[in-house]
Design a protein around this nucleic acid. Structure first.
Lengths: 113, 113
DNA sequence: CAGCGTTATGCATGCAAGAACACAACGAAA
DNA sequence: TTTCGTTGTGTTCTTGCATGCATAACGCTG
């Protein structure tokens, strides 16, 4: 039978000022891509707008280039667009994340307890 | 120059009832080995006795064999000893942890942001 | 130029994890 | 049998984080 224990974990990318990218942040970016606004993205993942906005702000301040371009007012009230740098950041994180999951699985199989 | 970004993370071992071993728990076990009591171990790492006790309880309940043997009263008031199963658990975690750190370093070097 | 929905931002509230505190139970040793 | 320091356990206090609410500011559109 499979071992009842399992190695688990999480990873994130840190810049000089703290967390830059993590699972939640990257999902948020993808939702922004999908919906075109922070408000809708936050709602879609049951996150408060306040918090979502802070995360975006943190990412923008920390990347050498903003990951999300925002504008208030105008058609539809405003919008938020994931930049090219943002797309690259997303891809970069998922690549590492995928390898990390593989690491966890492989390492779980070798647990001796 | 070295990239300003860094991949970081943490890992832990889960049993059916939740977290079994993590960095803090393993350090706590080692301090118990060193000091012979939960009280001294907790104090040595600025952790409340209450919390340390709960962690030990959680580990003991979750392992198929207790990792710490405790006894109240007696010479010196009581004592806590890390069992052989506990020692194996410690070793098991550090091995995985070491590989994890290597993974993070290697993966940090390959970050493209 | 009024309306609308979003960004932007402060402030009060809620919640969960851990710390801090208090005190009973324990058992060897003097 | 008294003493002593630890284990064991309930209760309250902090505190960091996220939510919720309120309210500007913004700028396209009818």
């Amino acid at each position: 039978m499979a071992n009842e224990y399992r190695l688990r974990g999480r990873i994130w990318i840190e810049g000089p000022e703290g967390t830059f990218l993590g699972y939640g942040r990257v999902v948020l970016l993808e939702r922004i891509q999908e919906h075109g606004s922070i408000t809708a993205a936050a709602r879609s993942m049951k996150m408060s707008y306040r918090h979502a906005w802070k995360l975006v702000e943190s990412m923008n301040n920390q990347g050498r280039t903003p990951v999300v371009e925002k504008s208030a007012g105008g058609r539809g009230g405003g919008r938020a667009i994931v930049t090219e740098a943002g797309e690259r950041a997303i891809a970069c994180f998922w690549t590492a994340y995928k390898e990390f999951k593989a690491f966890l699985n492989e390492r779980t199989a070798r647990l001796d307890l």
